[in-house]
């Protein structure tokens, strides 16, 4: 087995969720790298799309933020923020968008918190806030969620719901007036989770190599179905090679090797 870091594993696992024809909404950090990896490895016809209005960015260097001038290079067009979000709100184009989001907390239905820990008016910890995350999670057909697997992050009840996922499960999302679709996968540093087609509850899809089911469950604040678990394939040597040499040679996002 090739030698790899957990961040490399997470990035490659996320890149496998991206297919040709997908319009990939990227946030800051590991999500950009996953989109770059998909484009270089498995989905050359996917489209990298930033809320800042850079459409089909070519990304010769990994951006440090979605406003980085690097997102502007070779784009099909430069729009405004309003135009970028309108493409997601419009069902003709929004149905092709795959959003990649991270958060501080996630619940059983993939609802996300990236705003505060504690009381909103008097928080223990303040995070940056929604940015475009609430918009993306409200609009697009499918979201990929990145999380660190920790008990304080996988909580039965969010301190603040920044981004609506499947709300309370079943058809509650569409009944509330949100778009068809929602979170499809949660990728952590230990395991991958998906959502049941009917109940919309999160279930364990697979553990990373050398991670036990018990270790995964011990790091969660709620119970999930484990009957569908299957192993998650580690990155191939060629995936790692492209990720390291083409996507992030300075290891700005990947971190220490």
């Amino acid at each position: 087995m090739a030698d790899f870091t957990l961040r490399e594993m997470m990035t490659v696992v996320a890149s496998r969720e991206i297919h040709d024809g997908d319009i990939v909404f990227c946030g800051t950090g590991i999500s950009m790298l996953a989109a770059m990896a998909a484009k270089h490895i498995s989905a050359p016809e996917s489209i990298i799309f930033f809320e800042t209005g850079a459409i089909d960015a070519q990304l010769e260097e990994v951006p440090m933020a979605v406003s980085d001038s690097r997102v502007m290079l070779g784009a099909a067009m430069h729009g405004s923020l309003s135009e970028a979000f309108a493409f997601m709100q419009n069902p003709n184009t929004g149905s092709k968008v795959v959003g990649i989001l991270g958060a501080a907390q996630c619940d059983l239905y993939g609802n996300l918190n990236s705003t505060v820990i504690g009381d909103y008016a008097n928080p223990d910890i303040r995070f940056p806030g929604s940015g475009g995350a609430c918009d993306v999670s409200s609009f697009v057909r499918r979201t990929i969620v990145f999380m660190q697997l920790e008990k304080r992050r996988f909580v039965p009840r969010l301190d603040y719901m920044t981004s609506p996922g499947w709300l309370k499960g079943y058809t509650s999302r569409t009944a509330a007036g949100l778009s068809q679709g929602g979170p499809s996968v949660v990728i952590t540093d230990k395991a991958v989770f998906r959502f049941d087609e009917i109940t919309r509850k999160m279930y364990l899809d697979g553990c990373f190599p050398d991670v036990s089911r018990q270790e995964v469950l011990d790091n969660m604040g709620f119970k999930v179905d484990v009957t569908r678990e299957k192993p998650v394939a580690p990155p191939h040597a060629c995936e790692l090679e492209i990720l390291r040499s083409r996507c992030d040679p300075q290891r700005l996002i990947l971190g220490p090797s």
Binding site: F85, Q89, T115, Y120, Y160, P164, G177, L178
Partner: peptide, 15 residues
Amino acid sequence: PVKSGIESDIANQWG
């Protein structure tokens, strides 16, 4: 008008 934020705490919690 916009279609984002329904049911979120952006709608429910006011600063």
